[in-house]
């Protein structure tokens, strides 16, 4: 473990904002992609049931 405390970890030597926003955007984009594909699956299942 590199960090001495939790606040050390969050602050990232003063670069916390840049680091956490970067990681946040990356995983938010991946989650959005998965969410959109889930919506597409549900809609396709609905169509299949109607046919």
């Amino acid at each position: 473990m590199y960090w001495k405390s939790m606040s050390d970890f969050i602050q990232m030597g003063g670069y916390g904002l840049y680091v956490w926003v970067s990681f946040g955007i990356t995983f938010a984009c991946m989650a959005t992609e998965l969410f959109l594909l889930r919506a597409r699956r549900l809609s396709n299942e609905k169509i299949k049931d109607l046919l």
Partner: peptide, 28 residues
């Protein structure tokens, strides 16, 4: 990868902890 990159790996002597963006930036 996040565990090693964010918790274990040390800081960079030139860029400080801003370098940690590398772990998502370069693979992307």
């Amino acid at each position: 990868g996040l565990y090693i990159g964010l918790l274990v790996a040390p800081t960079d002597f030139q860029q400080g902890d801003a370098y940690r963006i590398i772990y998502v930036h370069v693979p992307a």
